[in-house]
Simulated scan of single mutants.
Amino acid sequence: MGIQIINGGFLTTIQDMGRYGYQETGMSVSGVMDTRAASLANILVGNDTNEAVIEITMMGPTMKFTEDEIIAVTGGDLGAKIDGKPVERYRAVLVKAGQTLSFMGMYGGSRAYIAFAGGLDIPVVMGSRSTNLKSKVGGYEGRKLGTGDEIAFRAPASWLPHMAERVYGLPSYGAKEWTLRVVMGPQDDCFTDKGINTFLNSTYTISNEYDRMGCRMEGDVIEHKNGGDIITDGISFGAVQVPSHGNPIVMMADHQTTGGYTKIANVISVDLPVLAQCMPGMKIHFEKVTVDEAQALYCKEKEEFDALAKRLNTPVEPADDEQAVAIAAASEANKTAWVKAGTYKISVNGKEFLVELEKEVVRFR
């Protein structure tokens, strides 16, 4: 089977990297708020980075496992525990059937992610498994998870190669003040020089009006040339809208597809996960970077993820000393020398088997 939700927590949804290609119809992209944490969770359990995960906001759920499965919990520290014992974040962990995963507090960050090896049995709607809460589309019946919900695993695993190495360094969410890098535009010409200077040199406070759609901030007023209204145009994840009141609003994962307020800048992709983990009351600064700099940072992160996935999913060759011992022993006995070639998981008629393979190194006959 999979998991049974005992308690859904505050806001627990199914998300992947988003529903692309439908904004022209008014359908939001949605997807995870913290793309870095979700990607790493999937890599640690051997999934593609676009595989659906469970996104947890602030107060987490309680769920019971009805089948063995390898998971990884990443993102904020929301007090994950298995049968009451703390779970190490950013590590692949085997959960046995009958065990319960719960979240018991908020110790840093505001959103956590759970990836499941082989993925969750959630239908693909318009190319994505993400939950669009406003449209009630995707995910689990288009809504947040609640008591009594059950989700099956598509291809659960109880073993993965390099299990001991499936770990990643813990991020720090202890700061109360953060800098977000931005690319200016597309309507930065609608602001006075004073307004641009205010935006880039002021400290803004995240207000209580912060959800999956947007993050409203409070601080020094950003001066427009002729007001904050424009002809409606497209909105992207990270767009910084500045209405006539002069305070910035950063558009998040469930942002609307179009908007009629001036956009002074866009938070770069690699910094959006920082904002996703922030809480109301935290302080924000904006720093200008170029498009080339933003792209270089994005490519560097992508290369890091690709390298990690390749390392964790590449079978290990036997060590040279192991081969040497096997060859020496076989030579003395005038037999064929064999060494271990690795342990692999295979599936036959829906059942999982671990198979240990050997390969012939040299013959002495």
Rank of each mutant, 00 (worst) to 15 (best):
G238R: 02
T262N: 15
N132Y: 12
S269W: 00
Q99D: 05
I70W: 11
P123A: 00
E303A: 13
A326E: 12
G60R: 02
N208S: 13
I14V: 15
A80E: 02
V355H: 00
P171Y: 03
V250G: 00
V339M: 09
V355A: 08
T192Q: 09
E69R: 09
S102R: 02
Q4T: 12
Y298A: 02
W159V: 03
H255P: 03
E150D: 04
G60W: 00
T205C: 08
G31R: 02
V274W: 00
G169Q: 13
C299I: 15
A341Y: 07
E358D: 14
G79E: 10
E67V: 07
D292S: 13
E322G: 00
T35H: 12
I122W: 01
V87D: 04
R111V: 02
G76L: 06
F191R: 06
F364L: 11
P243I: 04
S39F: 04
L40P: 02
G148C: 08
Q323M: 15
V316F: 09
R166G: 11
G234N: 08
G118Q: 07
Y140S: 12
L101I: 04
I235Q: 05
D83N: 14
T258F: 07
K96D: 02
T57H: 07
K136N: 09
C190H: 14
L78M: 10
N42A: 09
I264R: 00
N313E: 14
P315M: 06
G138V: 12
G108S: 00
T74K: 10
G84N: 08
G185V: 01
I56V: 15
A253Q: 07
R166W: 03
P86N: 12
N313P: 06
E356T: 15
M106S: 09
T100H: 04
T25N: 09
V53M: 07
A175K: 14
G21N: 09
P123I: 00
G342H: 09
D16W: 03
E356Q: 13
L275P: 05
G84V: 04
N349D: 14
M279R: 10
S28P: 11
V348R: 07
S236L: 05
V240L: 02
L275H: 05
V289L: 01
G46M: 08
E218H: 12
D48C: 08
T192M: 08
T198A: 13
G281H: 09
I3C: 09
G105Y: 09
H245Q: 14
G259S: 06
L11M: 14
S130H: 10
F199A: 10
G46T: 03
K359D: 04
H162E: 12
Q241G: 04
S28C: 12
T131H: 08
